[in-house]
């Protein structure tokens, strides 16, 4: 069984979590070009690497961030959004 550490509830089985995709910066819809916006909506950074991702702990309703190596499937650390420095 794979495990993941929720920053609020501690280590829990992976089946309690939902993957929310990579953390991405939204361009300003008022100033960006149509092409930039379409790129934001559809395109993804699909290449492997150490990525910052959204994860959701279902039973407690907690969204948080995990830094994960998508090649080895190893999580370096997890933290609540905006609390990166407190870790």
């Amino acid at each position: 069984m794979k495990l993941l550490k929720c920053p609020v509830n501690g280590v829990r089985p992976l089946s309690e979590f939902v993957f929310g995709g990579e953390v991405r910066e939204m361009p300003d819809p008022n100033t960006c070009s149509d092409q930039e916006w379409a790129g934001y909506v559809h395109h993804r950074n699909g290449a492997p690497g150490m990525k910052k991702e959204w994860w959701y702990h279902g039973p407690s309703g907690t969204w948080f961030i995990a830094e994960r190596d998508t090649m080895r499937d190893e999580v370096a650390r997890t933290y609540l959004y905006g609390q990166e420095d407190k870790q």
């Binding site: 069984m1 990525k51 998508t70 499937d73």
Partner: peptide, 12 residues
Amino acid sequence: PYEVHSTRSSLD
């Protein structure tokens, strides 16, 4: 259910 670049299989 999520992105991984490997061909490891699982008991799950």
